[in-house]
Nucleic acid binder design. Sequence first.
DNA 1: ATGACGTCATAAGCTGACTTTATGACCAGT
DNA 2: ACTGGTCATAAAGTCAGCTTATGACGTCAT
Lengths: 307, 307
Amino acid sequence: MTSESSVTSPLSHRVPDLGALELLLAVARHGSLGRAAREVGITQPAASSRIRSMERQLGVALVDRSPRGSRLTDAGALVTDWARRIVEAAEAFDAGAQALRGRRDSRLRVAASMTIAEYLLPGWLIALRAERPGTAVSLMAGNSAVVAERLLAGEADLGFVEGLAVPEGLNGAVVAHDRLAVVAAPSHPWSRRRKRLDPSELAATPLILRERGSGTRQVLDSALAAHGGLAQPLLELASTTAVKAAAVSGAGPAVLSELAIMEELASRRLVEIPVEGVLLRRDLRAVWPTGHRPTGPARDLLSLTRA
Amino acid sequence: MTSESSVTSPLSHRVPDLGALELLLAVARHGSLGRAAREVGITQPAASSRIRSMERQLGVALVDRSPRGSRLTDAGALVTDWARRIVEAAEAFDAGAQALRGRRDSRLRVAASMTIAEYLLPGWLIALRAERPGTAVSLMAGNSAVVAERLLAGEADLGFVEGLAVPEGLNGAVVAHDRLAVVAAPSHPWSRRRKRLDPSELAATPLILRERGSGTRQVLDSALAAHGGLAQPLLELASTTAVKAAAVSGAGPAVLSELAIMEELASRRLVEIPVEGVLLRRDLRAVWPTGHRPTGPARDLLSLTRA
DNA sequence: ATGACGTCATAAGCTGACTTTATGACCAGT
DNA sequence: ACTGGTCATAAAGTCAGCTTATGACGTCAT
């Protein structure tokens, strides 16, 4: 192994900072260090030095400099693609964080359940910003009851919930679907099964679960009710993240929202276990007080989310 | 709109740097600033100050401090989840960049096509690092011909290609599938179609495409050959990224690999247009020289990728 | 009660990374 | 040759973040 590859130093020492990555993307777009520098608001020598130190840090030449401009090397193109994913995640972070700041003068006040706020809303906010720049959004995250309360109190203009039913006093429209998936680490015996899992077997096996009362748990229990009773907890954890981490580490099978595990499935840190005939689907809905159809910015956001 | 929300200042001024985000994740894990500080290798006062300035920057309280430790606030939990996605993208970047550095003493030398190197390999490398820490990997990216050449010259131990066929002299195993999808911006008329698109209509409509000769273009042309001839280019662009950007901006419909557009579909910046009866599927294969079944680290990586 | 141990906050001084300004070298096209 | 574009280098200033040293506060066990 190389001397560096085994070092467990903090990521931040081995990955260029966001400013450098943005600069790299700008260089890719413009084909010139100087123009890229202008785009990100620094001078040309600063850009030159920054790209150079990024190349030193990574140990790879990223751009071919010529008197007619700079083009990415092959390795540079690859690095730029990877960098773009970091920057996109940062954009989602920024969109979410700005909404969370929650100024009272926001034109659109959104109340959303945790799952939606975590996985879907940042993307929607980016799309909204692209279509209606200057729409200031504020975000309140909470469970269905909290969302309903805010809407009915007139403290929010649009809500998003993930329950089985629309709360009393609200109207809603389904904007997306979520599916609960049974997953396990690739090392788990279930990941090598050939037959689909039988629901009764699922109900009889201790699982890593969110605590009783969580939305995920409710959906699972109601789906298993017809097949031999409630889910058996192997571990009960307080957050989706904790459940995921336990499952990845091989502690046992878990039941998680599809939204939460897309990346783990793609990288095969988790494997989905097909289940026979159990429908673990739930609707994600936009909601508003009965009679108050969304208008203005709320309507803009709603139309973005409709599938 | 708020004074900040309309500012188009660089992302890096509004998003905390990677070190701060890592620190926040550590605080979430440990429930204590001091212990989190120790984990990321700084002192407690530094952590205290860094979290505080992050809270100032975001305008949101992230942790509840008490003499018995620190817990995330509700907003802090949400911010932490968003931060985790940035850090995960940074981990993928790091895994890829280390492989790209390509020391000659690497124990596992991989040659991969661009699409695979870009979208799948970083995740595999993270998984490999988790299972076999200390396996130094080097990466060479290129088209199928380059991959084959490296393998046959003994300069690579394992290859990944995405063509329609296995190159001469190599054996292979399908490790994943890719599907080409017809996509358009939500504003495009096709996104409001109710009927599936007819292949002959697809062949007759000018599309945003990669340049002739690219893998994507070849697959599309061969699929359309049976339905009225080759694809008509509206724009021919040199990179997947450029095609994607043009499609997102509404320039027209595009045909892109499913891997490349997962995020855009999730956030509805792009909409998939269902097509009637055209199979735009292609296999992604691991390959090695005929007769040289992968062993050691190459076998470890191969077994990770098998679906 | 009281002392020990944990928590986090504050203050002062240092270091280093990144910046700008001011140049210079290089190349292409006029 | 000259003009206008490219990138590189050097010197000097700025500022964020670090460490060390200390203090305040709450909990727990004696």
